[in-house]
Every structure is written in C-alpha cells, then in structure tokens.
Amino acid sequence: MEFNKIEQLFEKYFEARTTEAEEQELRDYFSGGQVAEHLEPYRAMFAYFSDAKKERSIRQVPLKPRKTLYQWISVAAGIVLVAGIFFGKQYQERKEAEYAYLQTKKALGLLAENLDRGKEKVAYLQEFEDTKQKIIKNN
C-alpha cells in the first residue's frame, strides 16, 4: 500500500506535479532506512539535495567601507567649500580696502594741489599790501 503510493508520487515527481507536502513525503521516504531496491539509486539524489542545503557562506560582507568613503568625500568637499568662501571673502575685502585707499589718496592729492595754487594767489595779495604801505609812508 505504502509502497504503491511512493511509486505514484515518484512518477508525479518527475512530471513536476508534486506538491511541497508530497515532495516532503518522498524526502522522508528516501532518508528512511527502507528504500525499495529498484529505487535505491535515487537515494543519493535526495541525500544530495538536503546535503547541498547545508552549505553556508563564510565570508563577512563589509558594508561600512563604501559608506564611510562617501562620508569622507562629502566632509572634504564641505571643508573646501567653507574655506573657499572664507578666503575668497578675505581677498575681496583686501581688494576693496586697497581701492578705497587709492581713491582717498587721489582725493587728498587733488586737495593739496588746489591748496598750493590758492597759496600762490595769496602771495600776490601780500605784494598789494606792501605797495600800499609804501604809498602810506611816502605821504
């Protein structure tokens, strides 16, 4: 009885029409001690399948390195950006100060020049005064 059922399941198995439960039944049968002689060759097949399932991957997968590399790149980019803004601003400020200095110097130069010209004219006034004094003395 039992054996007929196994035979039927076995045929169904090769047509890929067995359910998971039926395949479990077959596995149990072939892993048990009493396997019919003509089915004996297939014992190795089922034994191999369950044996193959025991294999394990032994390597640890490094998940961190890739991530930290990206992190460091972003940190470095951030530093470069901040430094760029800071030094760029400093440079710009220095340029502005230099420009203001030149403008001031130019303005002061202009002032001094005009002042000199004014002084020359004032010298004529002195001459006028001298002449006036001479006239007064003579009279």
Binding site: E55, S57, R59, L63, R66
Partner: peptide, 27 residues
Amino acid sequence: KDKLYRLAKRLLVSTEEAEDATQEVLM
C-alpha cells in the same frame, strides 16, 4: 544570504567566485 551563496555556487561552481557574487549582490 546562504541561499544567495548556494545559488551562486550552483552556477559558478567555484566557492571563491560564489562568495564574490554574494558579496557583490549584498553590497
């Protein structure tokens, strides 16, 4: 993870290459 490894080994045969493939897929 082990299922990925066993599938990779079924196709690639070599243990080393199967580990490589598993690592690559997980990453």
